[in-house]
Amino acid sequence: SIKEIEKEEIIKVLKEVNFNKKLASEILGIPLRTLYKRLKEYGI
């Protein structure tokens, strides 16, 4: 599903940037606030 793909992509990017959420949100092209929402939604 799209949610699974998105979750995997978020985890992959977070690992690449050593869990720097600000940098991860910039790489993913989403606002930091949205990233936090996704992390909560996906239980990351």
Score class of each variant (00 low, 15 high):
Ser1Glu: 14
Ser1Lys: 02
Ser1Val: 12
Ile2Lys: 07
Ile2Tyr: 05
Ile2Ser: 14
Lys3Thr: 12
Lys3Ser: 13
Lys3His: 12
Glu4Ile: 09
Ile5Tyr: 13
Glu6Asn: 11
Lys7Gln: 07
Lys7Leu: 11
Lys7Met: 14
Glu8Arg: 13
Glu8Thr: 10
Ile11Val: 10
Ile11Ser: 05
Ile11His: 05
Lys12Asn: 09
Val13Leu: 09
Val13Glu: 01
Leu14Gln: 00
Leu14Thr: 02
Leu14Met: 13
Lys15His: 11
Lys15Gln: 11
Glu16Trp: 09
Val17Tyr: 06
Asn18Arg: 10
Asn18Tyr: 08
Phe19Asp: 06
Phe19Cys: 03
Asn20Pro: 01
Asn20Ser: 07
Asn20Val: 06
Asn20Phe: 04
Asn20Cys: 05
Lys21Gln: 07
Lys21Tyr: 15
Lys22Gly: 06
Lys22Leu: 12
Leu23Phe: 07
Leu23Ala: 12
Ala24Pro: 00
Ala24Leu: 03
Ala24Trp: 02
Ala24Ile: 02
Ser25Met: 03
Ser25Tyr: 01
Ser25Ile: 03
Glu26Tyr: 10
Glu26Arg: 10
Glu26Trp: 08
Glu26Phe: 11
Ile27Pro: 00
Leu28Val: 02
Leu28Pro: 00
Leu28Asn: 00
Gly29Arg: 07
Gly29Gln: 10
Gly29Thr: 03
Ile30His: 01
Ile30Asp: 00
Ile30Val: 07
Pro31Ile: 02
Pro31Trp: 04
Pro31Thr: 14
Pro31Tyr: 02
Leu32Trp: 05
Arg33Trp: 12
Arg33Ser: 14
Thr34Tyr: 08
Thr34His: 08
Thr34Val: 14
Thr34Gly: 05
Leu35Pro: 00
Leu35Ser: 00
Leu35Val: 02
Leu35Asp: 00
Tyr36Lys: 15
Tyr36Pro: 01
Lys37Asn: 11
Lys37Trp: 08
Arg38Ser: 07
Lys40Gln: 13
Lys40Leu: 12
Lys40Ala: 11
Lys40Thr: 09
Lys40Tyr: 10
Glu41Tyr: 07
Glu41Asp: 09
Tyr42Asp: 04
Tyr42Gln: 04
Tyr42His: 08
Tyr42Met: 13
Tyr42Pro: 02
Tyr42Lys: 02
Gly43Lys: 07
Gly43Trp: 04
Gly43Gln: 10
Ile44Trp: 10
Ile44Gln: 05
